[in-house]
Simulated assay, not measured.
Amino acid sequence: MLHIGCHLSSSKGFLHMGEEALSINADTFQFFSRNPRGSSAKAIDYEDVLALRNLMEQYHFPIILAHAPYTLNPCSKEERIRRFAQKIMKDDLQRMEFLPGNLYNFHPGSHVGQGSEIGIQQITELLNCLITPQQTTTILLETMAGKGSEVGSHFEELQKIIEGVEHKEKMGVCLDTCHVYDAGYDIVNNLDGVLKEFDQTIGLNHLCAIHLNDSKNPFGSHKDRHEKIGEGSIGFEAMVRIINHPALRHLPFFLETPNELSGYQKEIARLREAYIED
């Protein structure tokens, strides 16, 4: 079964997101953990959370994904910015325990001229301060496009971060199709080769989710501009191969394409039609 959803606004609450997902024939969704350009977060409404948990059980949602705000930079050269990232992520992970067993995704950040090795060390140190053996949330590092001094556009960088984390069982990766293609991994012409490299470097056991996005820019551009499915340089045929690949087809797919809800509904319908059931 194809587990697919899109990014939904959390402004009207958790149950509303679940109902919106069902309205477009999705069985999962992604949401921002708080204001994506700031730090404010709504108070947890336990009844609302419980209503979503009941809906997810009733309609067999496999898992959902919370996305950390874009403002965080866990490997900034400024200590106050790193401390801010740690504070926000700690609070997010505590809040995620109201929705146990789900996913929390973040951008590794930009080393801002310090060099990737120092950036990797700082990200690892932050994660080791945050992760507890008791948490049920899996933290995902997102693959990045390689803009500027971004950490995470190379599989080796993500592997080094995970390798340095004490509780590796709480860590995973979210592979963004636009980002990896823009970073220079040819998922259009060599999907098997890219996945083999991922497996040899990080391990496919750490791959927990897919951001399914087309790209507005050509291969290896390091630009990171998402496009609607089938309307970019990756193309629909490559997307079909991705959702049907034996190593990927069981994973949850999250659309982050430039769409309104009706556009997501059309993309989900098209992808479901192209999915080959077992």
Rank of each mutant, 00 (worst) to 15 (best):
V165Y: 04
A183R: 03
E156P: 01
G230Q: 05
D224Q: 06
V173D: 07
E227N: 13
V240Y: 03
E256A: 11
H179I: 07
F254S: 02
N205S: 15
F155P: 02
N190F: 03
H245T: 12
A247P: 00
F198N: 01
E166M: 09
P246I: 13
L251A: 13
E256S: 11
I229W: 02
E237M: 11
I202D: 06
K228F: 01
K216M: 14
A183Y: 01
H179M: 06
L251D: 12
C178K: 00
V188R: 01
E166A: 04
P218K: 12
R249V: 09
S215W: 06
V194T: 10
K168I: 07
F254P: 05
F219D: 03
D192G: 05
V240G: 05
L175K: 05
I162S: 08
D176M: 11
E156C: 02
G184N: 08
S221R: 06
D192K: 03
S233H: 15
G220K: 03
H250G: 02
D224W: 05
T177C: 09
Y185K: 00
K223N: 12
Q200M: 09
S233C: 14
E256Q: 11
I243R: 04
E256W: 09
K160C: 00
L255K: 03
D214H: 09
H211N: 11
L175E: 04
G193K: 08
D224P: 08
H250Q: 14
V188D: 02
H226V: 04
D192V: 00
H154Y: 10
K160L: 13
E157S: 00
F155D: 03
L248T: 12
F236I: 12
D214Q: 10
A247Q: 14
E256I: 13
P252Q: 10
A209E: 10
I242Y: 04
F254A: 01
G172L: 10
F198S: 02
I242G: 11
F198L: 15
L207V: 02
K170G: 07
F253D: 04
K170I: 08
G235N: 12
T201N: 05
Q159C: 11
I242C: 10
K216A: 13
L248Y: 08
M171I: 13
G203I: 10
G193W: 06
E157G: 04
G232F: 00
I161T: 09
H154K: 15
Q159M: 10
I202F: 01
D192H: 02
D186R: 07
K228I: 13
H179Y: 02
P252E: 10
